[in-house]
């Protein structure tokens, strides 16, 4: 028996809107630790890793580990039917072939339940080792989204370079080139507007903007985004989910042939 009650149901709506276009089908894993998902996009270039810790739920019951295969587009359709202030409860029976999403309005005057069929998904789980990154950039998530969107009007790829001067986002296309440099800025009044650059070694990596733009659909989840770079690793773009966990995107770089 699985029963997860999330008072801030809008978080789950935002998570689904962030990942449904990147991944079609995925297994949600439930354990005593929390509700998690790891899935790659169909071309095995990008990976989504979600964790919602059990402590973040108002009620969390998971009698035994359960893996539920879901079509993310269909799940997103159902969650779209929840109001932004609704409490969302996810329910499933052990060994059952469906999952129920229950939506309660804040004053309990409307209760809806949506049942969705589960599916068998043969997914490849990747072991992602803990790594030390050469550079970690923390910046406003809206600024990151703006930069990725702007650059994708000029070119298809972005070169992200971190030096002691700051972080530079560059692209080139048929019409010309673009460079955007952000310097560290910790002097702002609001911490969510800060840009913080931790650099061990200068690093420069090239990524497909199509994927970066897809990751920025998670912008409503967090005011800040963390971009972790190492020359020998995929980039990690992380959105923290308030008090509960994270949504991380991994993207393999492009390299010169």
């Amino acid at each position: 028996m699985l029963e997860l009650r999330l008072v801030q149901g809008s978080l789950l709506k935002k998570v689904m809107e962030s990942i449904k276009d990147l991944v079609n089908d995925a297994n949600f894993d439930c354990s005593a630790t929390g509700f998690s998902l790891q899935a790659m996009d169909s071309s095995h270039v990008a990976l989504v890793s979600l964790l919602l810790r059990s402590e973040g739920f108002e009620h969390y019951r998971c009698d035994r580990n359960l893996s539920m295969g879901m079509n993310l587009g269909n799940m997103a359709k159902m969650l779209k039917c929840a109001g932004n202030d609704d409490i969302v409860t996810v329910k499933a029976d052990d060994g059952g072939d469906c999952v129920t999403f229950m939506f309660e309005s804040p004053n309990q005057d409307k209760i809806a339940d949506f049942e969705m069929k589960l599916m068998d998904i043969d997914s490849e789980h990747l072991g992602i080792p803990e790594a030390e990154y050469e550079a970690i950039v923390r910046m406003p998530s809206a600024e990151f989204a703006r930069i990725c969107k702007d650059l994708s009007t000029i070119g298809d790829t972005v070169v992200i370079s971190v030096t002691k001067e700051g972080v530079k986002f560059s692209t080139r296309g048929d019409i010309g080139t673009a460079n955007i440099v952000l310097r560290q800025n910790t002097s702002v009044d609001k911490p969510e507007e800060a840009t913080i650059i931790e650099m061990e070694t200068p690093v420069s990596l090239t990524f497909a903007l199509r994927y970066m733009n897809s990751f920025t659909k998670a912008t409503p989840l967090a005011s800040q985004v963390t971009v972790s770079l190492s020359s020998e690793l995929p980039v990690v773009v992380e959105y923290k989910i308030a008090e509960m966990g994270y949504l991380r995107f991994y993207l393999a770089p492009k390299i010169e042939e």
């Binding site: 990976l47 990747l126 020998e232 393999a252």
Partner: peptide
């Protein structure tokens, strides 16, 4: 030209 690396070039399947 750039070659798009795959995640399996970096991470192992469990």
């Amino acid at each position: 030209a750039c070659l798009q690396k795959k995640l399996l070039d970096y991470f192992n399947a469990d």
